Simulated scan of single mutants.
Amino acid sequence: SDDDLIPYDMSEDKELKTKAPVYIRNCIEVLTGSEDVDKWEATVKALESLVRKNPVATREVSVELAKILLHLEEKTCIEGFVELRQRAQVAVLTTDPIPVAKYLTSQFYSLNYSLRQRMDILDVLVLAAKELSYPKFHGKTKPSDVQKPCLQLPPGSDSSKDWRRIVDERIKSKTRRFAVSHSQVELASGPNEFNSVAGHFFFPLIQHFDRPLTTFDLLGEDHIVLGRLVHTLAILMYLAVNTVAVTAMGKALLEFVWALRFHTDSYVRQGLLSCISSMLLSVPTEHLLEDMTEELLETQSWLEDVVEKDPDGDCRRLALQNLLLMENLKKKLRTVPS
C-alpha cells in the first residue's frame, strides 16, 4: 500500500537545483533583488569563496558589495548567517583594502546605523587587518583556520581579555633579560600586506570620536561602542608593527588616550590602557623616546596614578604592566651600542 512507501528525501535535489551564481555581479543582483529565497541562501553561502577566487572582478564592485553586505538582513533561517556575512565582508575588505576601508570607516560615524552595525564594522576591520598582517596565511589557508582576534563577543564577556593575553605574552618577551633578540626576530618578519593600508583602517576611526551625531554619541550614552572602538584601535596599533605609519599612529593614539583617560567606564579605561601597551610594543623604541618624550613622561605619571587609585583591578594591572614595559624600553635603549 501507499503507507508502506518510504518518502524520498528531496533535500539534496533542492541543493542541486539551486546553484549559487558564479559571477560576482550576479551575486549582487541576487542579494539586492532576487525573490528566490533558495538562490539568495546559496549566494550567501558561496560569496566568500567566490570573492577570494575572483579578486579582479571583486575590485570592480568592492564598495558596492561592502555596502550590500553591511545592510544585508537575514531573509531565511540560514544557519550561521552572521558569520557567513562577516566572512564575506572580510574577504571583500582584504581583496580591496583601501576603498573598502575608506567606505566602512566613513560609515562608522554616519547617521542611521544601529549600534550593532557600528560594532560589526569594527569587527570586520579587525579581522581583515589580522589577515592582512600575516601574509603567510593570506590566500593559503582558509580564513576560518586563521586565528581570529577575540573581538567578536560583546563587551562584558572576556573577549578583550583574550586579546590582551596575546599582548601580555609579547610584553613578557620584551621584558625578559634577552629582549633584544626578540625584537630582532619581530623586525626580521618584515613588511606585510597591512603595511601600506594600516593608516586607512586606523586614522578615520580616530578622527571623529568627539563629535556627537544626532543618533550616536560615543562620549555619552553609547560608551559600549566607545569601548569597542578603543579596543579596536589597540588591536590595529598592535598589528601595525613594522608598518610605515606606525609612529604617526602611535602619536595619534596617545592623544586619543589622553583625551579619554578619565572615562568613568572601566571597559573603556581597560581599552585605553591596552592602547598604551600596543603603542609601546609597536612603535620603535627610539621613535618613542625621541619623538614623544614629553608625552611619555605625562603618560608615566598618569599610569602611576592609575596603579594607585583606579577602582578596577584590570586597569591597575594593565597600568603596572605598561610602567614595567616603559622601564624596560628605556633600559634597552641605554644598552644598545651607538
Rank of each mutant, 00 (worst) to 15 (best):
Leu320Pro: 00
Leu151Phe: 11
Asn26Trp: 02
Cys150His: 11
Asp265Glu: 15
Lys102Thr: 10
Asp4Lys: 08
Thr232Val: 10
Asp96Pro: 01
Ile98Asp: 09
Asp222Glu: 11
Leu325Ile: 13
Thr76Gly: 06
Lys14Phe: 15
Trp163Thr: 15
Phe137Lys: 01
Glu41Val: 04
Pro204Gln: 02
Pro154Val: 10
Glu290Trp: 08
Val197Gly: 04
Pro143Asn: 10
Lys19Leu: 12
Ile68Trp: 05
Tyr134Pro: 00
Gln152His: 11
Glu295Ser: 14
Asp265Phe: 00
Leu272Phe: 12
Pro135Gln: 01
Thr32Arg: 12
Asp217Ile: 04
Asp210Leu: 01
Asp265Ser: 12
Lys332Tyr: 03
Ser301Asn: 00
Ala234Asn: 08
Thr247Ser: 15
Lys14Arg: 15
Ala20Gln: 10
Val180Arg: 15
Leu213His: 14
Thr105His: 10
Leu272Thr: 12
Leu70Val: 01
Thr299His: 02
Ser189Phe: 07
Leu280His: 00
Thr43Gln: 05
Leu125Asn: 04
Ser157Pro: 06
Lys330Thr: 11
Lys19Glu: 13
Met279Pro: 09
Phe81Met: 10
Glu73Gln: 03
Leu253Lys: 02
Gly199Leu: 02
Asn112Pro: 04
Ser196Pro: 00
Gln300Leu: 03
Leu218Trp: 01
Glu295Val: 04
Arg164Met: 13
Gln152Arg: 14
Leu229Val: 08
Asn242Gly: 07
His71Ala: 09
Phe203Asn: 10
Pro212Ser: 07
Cys77Asn: 15
Arg334Pro: 00
Arg116Asn: 07
Phe194Met: 09
Arg228Met: 12
Ala179Ser: 15
His200Gly: 06
Ser282Glu: 08
Lys140Cys: 03
Ala198Thr: 07
Tyr238Leu: 07
Ser196Asn: 09
Ser49Asn: 13
Leu205Trp: 11
Thr299Arg: 02
His71Gly: 01
Phe216Ala: 03
Gln184Thr: 10
Ala66Trp: 02
Tyr113Cys: 01
Lys330Cys: 11
Asp291Cys: 08
Ser49Val: 05
Thr335Gly: 02
